Amino acid sequence: MKLIDTRDAVGQVLCHDITQIIPGVSKGPVFRKGHIVQPEDIPVLLRCGKEHLYVWEKDESMLHENEAAEILRDLCRNDHMTASEPKEGKIELSADCDGLFLADAQRIRAVNALGRMMIATRSSGFAVKKGDKLCGTRIIPLVIEKTAMEEARKAAGPEPLLQLRPFRARRFGVVTTGSEVQKGLIQDAFTPVLEQKLAEYGCTMAAHATPGDDSDAITAAIRQMADAGVELILCTGGMSVDPDDRTPLAIRQSGASIVGYGAPVLPGAMFMLGYLEDGRPVCGLPGCVMYAKRTIFDLVLPRLLADVPVTADWLAGLGVGGLCLNCPECHFPNCSFGKGL
């Protein structure tokens, strides 16, 4: 690539797009990379403010911005992702399906720290829809040394930097605790909320039980659902520290291996999660899940439906960003809730 006076560019091949900006009207390329400059193009180029142009001069040690962006694309792309064509040296990846988007922050940081190149992604750990944009890649200069891109490959490592884990619709069961519901003194307002929330992921309720407050009865309801093949069991109510709140004990008695009781998230501090012997999740949902717009359950549910293990360490890491600000108009997930360091 070499720099020449625009007036001397007739017959030369552009090695980058030429962008024209008309304020309030348009912004876009007036000439594309690879265009052979014609005499009538010179006045247009000068009106775009291009007194000089970079034209292609082959150098085997260098890569053009589009070629470098393709390398960054390949470092990022995994299954269920579609790449755009290079445009002004940038390539974007989009989701091929609904799923949980995950980005390896440490390795992406290592690539970006090399300088002169960038990978920018959406927030990791949140649900995406088919067609959603996942990331963009490009180098900063117009050309870059091949050796620099080899350094990027080393920093990224052998595995793709991004994952899109498709959701798998589940048959779920709800164990509604509380003697007041069992006796019909109040209407169960919790279950309809869960049905609506899980329907967004294509899940259907396969079982419902109202065992009251007895821990053995709650445990029996959990085990009955498990024996019937229910894939996700949700226990509602009885999750605080009141003497008659027995749900945590019942979940432990079910044989579930407990990941954690309590999470650094508000709303949702009294959340509980365990896994049965075969890996099926059992959740204890505090009352806030019924009435609050977004809670701990909205952060955990996508992982459960994408078969991504929820660990005690991951739950502990939710503290920074784990405070919902209860905005008058909820914009989740386009907000700070659930987005840690």
Rank of each mutant, 00 (worst) to 15 (best):
T176P: 10
D213V: 08
L232V: 06
P192F: 06
E180D: 13
Q163V: 01
E200Y: 06
T210Q: 15
R223A: 10
Q163M: 07
M225N: 03
G173S: 05
L194D: 02
H208F: 10
G184E: 04
T204E: 12
G184S: 03
G157E: 14
A207K: 13
Q163F: 01
E195C: 11
A220M: 05
A207F: 12
T236L: 10
P211L: 03
D188Y: 09
S179K: 11
V230P: 01
G237C: 12
Q224Y: 05
D188V: 08
K183I: 14
T204H: 15
Q196I: 04
L185V: 15
A221T: 11
S179N: 15
M225H: 04
Q187A: 11
G157I: 15
T176S: 15
M205F: 07
C203R: 00
A189L: 11
T177I: 04
G157M: 13
Q163I: 00
A206E: 14
F167H: 08
A220D: 14
A207C: 03
E200C: 08
G229M: 02
E195N: 13
L198N: 02
L232F: 05
I222D: 01
S179P: 09
I218M: 01
V181F: 06
E180C: 09
D214M: 05
Y201W: 14
T236H: 06
L198W: 12
E200S: 08
Q163R: 15
L234I: 11
L185F: 14
L234A: 03
T219G: 09
E195A: 06
M225W: 00
S215L: 12
D213Y: 08
T177A: 06
K197H: 10
G229D: 08
I218Y: 01
D214T: 07
A209V: 01
D227M: 11
V174W: 01
A207E: 14
A228V: 07
H208I: 15
G173H: 07
S179M: 14
G157T: 12
Q187D: 13
M239N: 05
V193H: 01
G238K: 04
G229V: 10
I218R: 05
I186F: 13
I233V: 07
P158N: 14
R168M: 09
T210F: 11
G212W: 00
T177H: 04
T176F: 08
M239S: 11
K197A: 13
E159F: 04
E159W: 02
A209T: 08
L161K: 03
C235W: 10
A169C: 01
G229Y: 09
L234H: 02
Q224G: 11
T219H: 01
M239Q: 10
L234C: 05
C235Y: 02
K197V: 06
A220P: 08
A169E: 15
D188K: 00
I218C: 02
G184H: 07
D227R: 14
G229R: 04
I218G: 02
A221Y: 07
E195P: 02
M239W: 09
E159H: 13
T204Y: 11
A189F: 07
Q224P: 04
R165P: 00
V174H: 02
V175L: 11
A217I: 01
R168T: 12
P211N: 00
L232K: 00
V193Y: 04
G238V: 06
Q187V: 14
G173T: 05
I186A: 06
L194F: 06
A221S: 15
A209Q: 12
